[in-house]
């Protein structure tokens, strides 16, 4: 088992793509919201965890993974809307430290809320029929569900690309990321745009949670490791852009996956080292914001 075995490398690359897919779903909302409003939502990982739990609960109650896949993101997007309305809208003009502290507080509220409802033990969510088998790739068996995770991330990336690059609404979001004041001076309601992007980002975090549930288990605290990775993706990729989130997710997932295979003890260090190198070479991230100096 080494880099000389093409099948082994291919499987690890697939594993990295699977992780990249989840990281992308998580980080894209975080990234665009940060680009649009300089708003840091540390509770984004908590929304991912809530998505996993809601998905688990819906699948338990209905017996349908597919229903969970649809309802969990919707529920988390609604939760995002409520959070925005109750708390975050009041913090937008406030200084970043207030946002950090308030959303940091939400992490703990989220942890206790899921413990209170679902207990401290971890839960499993089974992959649905048709996706629960495995396929043989280059002589190695590989779970079909992991390919599905890659496909979901890729489909969302393509869908977001089409909306952002091919529609006037998408152009308005990019305009807001480039220069918020100028966009407002053209009559674009940045607050409403931000609300929409924020809720969509929350929904995608919820989608990441329910999609991740059959691969990783569902437990209180599943949000923490993933939040750190998603924040690193935003910093490495450069905030505010779809391509930054895609490239950042791929880079961090490859470093994480291959790091764990070849030097498990150094894997977590490797990610921070990658981040440090990227920031030394390109302080604005791999795809820096064009409108800012």
């Amino acid at each position: 088992m080494a880099l000389t075995d093409p099948a082994f490398v291919a499987i690890q690359v697939l594993n990295a793509f699977q992780l990249a897919s989840l990281l992308f779903l998580l980080s894209v909302g975080l990234s665009v919201v940060f680009g649009l409003m300089n708003f840091i939502n540390l509770a984004h990982g908590t929304l991912y965890m809530v998505g996993a739990y809601v998905g688990y609960a819906v699948a338990q109650a209905s017996g349908s993974f597919w229903l969970a896949l649809v309802l969990a993101p919707v529920a988390v997007a609604l939760l995002g809307a409520i959070l925005h309305w109750l708390l975050l809208a009041r913090l937008q003009a406030a200084n970043p430290m207030k946002q950090v502290l308030a959303t940091f507080g939400l992490i703990f509220m989220g942890l206790d809320a899921v413990r209170w409802v679902w207990g401290s033990q971890s839960h499993g969510l089974e992959a649905p029929a048709g996706l629960d088998g495995s396929v043989t790739l280059l002589g190695q068996t590989y779970p079909v569900y992991r390919l599905f995770v890659i496909a979901v991330g890729a489909a969302v990336a393509v869908g977001l690309y089409l909306v952002l690059e091919r529609t006037r609404l998408g152009a308005r979001v990019r305009a807001g990321v480039d220069d918020r004041d100028m966009a407002a001076a053209l009559g674009i309601d940045i607050g409403r745009l931000f609300f929409g992007v924020f809720c969509l980002g929350c929904g995608l975090a919820g989608l990441a949670g329910v999609v991740a549930a059959p691969v990783l288990s569902v437990y209180p605290g599943m949000n923490m490791s993933v939040l750190v990775l998603a924040l690193i993706v935003v910093v490495v990729g450069g905030p505010g852009s779809l391509s930054g989130a895609v490239i950042g997710s791929l880079l961090i997932a490859l470093v994480q996956t291959f790091g764990q295979v070849f030097a498990p003890a150094l894997a977590s260090v490797a990610i921070y080292a990658a981040m440090a190198i990227v920031l030394l070479v390109r302080p604005g991230g791999l795809i820096p914001l064009k409108g800012r100096s």
Partner: peptide, 9 residues
């Protein structure tokens, strides 16, 4: 004064 062209559009 800064014109405000959106550079990524």
């Amino acid at each position: 004064e800064t014109r405000g062209v959106f550079p990524s559009l």
